[in-house]
Write a protein that binds this DNA or RNA. Structure first.
Lengths: 254, 254
DNA sequence: TAGTGGTCTAGACCACACA
DNA sequence: GTGTGGTCTAGACCACTAA
């Protein structure tokens, strides 16, 4: 039943190859195997995966080892565990985006998902910052989307999204949904696993300010996000210019 | 040997009182007991705590249950586990602060601990925002510290710190160390467990700009931090105005 | 070599959801 | 009731550190 042989499956003696990377616990190998299932689409968003017992029997390890692997994946928001019901593949629904990726909150504390209005979408050759951010070749093409995001009808964010054209073929031909990550998942099988953001305070330039309906020079929060897929490769660069008169970026330090 | 009786210690039947709050796993009760030891100073920063086996025997639970409690505390950065050596109470050294609480990083990627130069320190009655942030009474007193923090000799942050005077008696009488949280721990036995930060982009006012050596109206990143102690009470409010020409706030979304 | 945390197992029982 | 994840136990063995 075992689909991939585990490093230690052949016997109790330490395998020669493992010495190079040091010790690799069994539950991590199991976890990697599960990540592979997520990447190749055998486990799809929203799906219930087999029970711990079934997985343990299938792979040939104890239920506790499977449990530890699943617990880590749940901690990384890739799986959702529900007592009494089962373990499910996390979806990129608005709830998750709001919880995991959208840190801009209205000052009254209510977290809402913003509307989007696309300004333009072009195919172009990468510029220097995009090349670095997305780790692309010199002449690679990107799809560049600009849009205004509003909260309660009020323009709040001017967003510029850069995507490698090779990774998202045909994306420039259709409409752009409000929830891009959900599209990445359903149409391209790409799961955004995590992201890192760099924040700066900047003064808005004339055109930026105009689009947001404020005066030139208004201070804005610039968020430079690089989103990583399951395999760790950068698949999106997103530059957000945010007005923070009535909203703030929430960061919890634990 | 058991110092505090556990909810389930008397027998296998469900205790009547537990029904109100719902089910409370044993390892959480054990964890709470450990947090109590951290709060009352029986476990001091830097100390090695007893081994898992000793704790298990002392409390009367299995080693696995103790382990789960310790693992959670380690995940919250309150303990540090070192294979082969033991489990230690986390210290508020520069390493930890840098890792856990200091998110402003120079653009070249090097994280350094900034110098501080105190501008003034006063005792005053709380203002409205401090009252809300620190959850204080109307006439309560705070210690207010203003200082400039520099990275590589360059002024970078104008910091205004508000502390409840009752919580930190005598603090206003002595010098202010660069690492405040270490002082809280060693002198007052207060551990900063976590914090939440609200970020906005603002334009610097005349006096603020002058202190940082830039022009009035220069955009700055305003970080409003509320730091919580082990028992969950707010013990510090810190407002930081940061220049982000050559530095950025790093936020990892996982 | 002794002691610590880390992994892995096997099995029992509990809390929860749903039919 | 049945099946799922969640807890708890007991014990064996592994990896690491320091004396």
């Amino acid at each position: 039943m075992t689909e991939h042989k585990l490093e230690n499956a052949t016997g109790p003696e330490t395998p020669a190859g493992a010495e190079i990377l040091g010790f690799r616990p069994l539950y991590r190998q199991v976890k990697d195997q599960f990540v592979r299932r997520l990447m190749d689409g055998r486990w799809l968003p929203g799906m219930a995966i087999p029970s711990e017992g079934q997985l343990a029997g299938e792979i040939g390890v104890s239920q506790g080892t499977v449990r530890k692997a699943l617990d880590e994946l749940a901690a990384e928001n890739l799986l959702v565990r529900r007592q009494g019901r089962g373990t499910f593949v996390a979806e990129h629904d608005e709830q998750r985006i709001l919880f995991q990726f959208f840190k801009l909150v209205s000052d009254d504390g209510v977290a809402r998902f913003p509307d989007s209005q696309v300004l333009d979408m072009v195919k172009a050759t990468v510029d220097a910052t995009e090349r670095t951010a997305l780790n692309l070749a010199a002449e690679a093409e990107v799809i560049r989307i600009r849009r205004i995001r509003s909260l309660g009808g009020k323009p709040l964010i001017l967003e510029t999204i850069s995507l490698p054209a090779l990774v998202f073929p045909g994306l420039a031909d259709g409409p752009v949904p409000n929830n891009l990550y959900s599209l990445f998942a359903t149409r391209y099988g790409i799961t955004i696993a995590n992201a890192c953001e760099r924040l700066k305070a900047v003064a808005l330039k004339g055109d930026e300010a105009q689009l947001l309906g404020v005066a030139t020079g208004t201070p804005a929060l610039a968020i430079d996000r690089i989103a990583l897929s399951l395999d760790g490769s950068a698949v999106e660069r997103r530059l957000s210019l945010c007005l923070t008169e009535e909203a703030h970026y929430q960061s919890d330090l634990r």
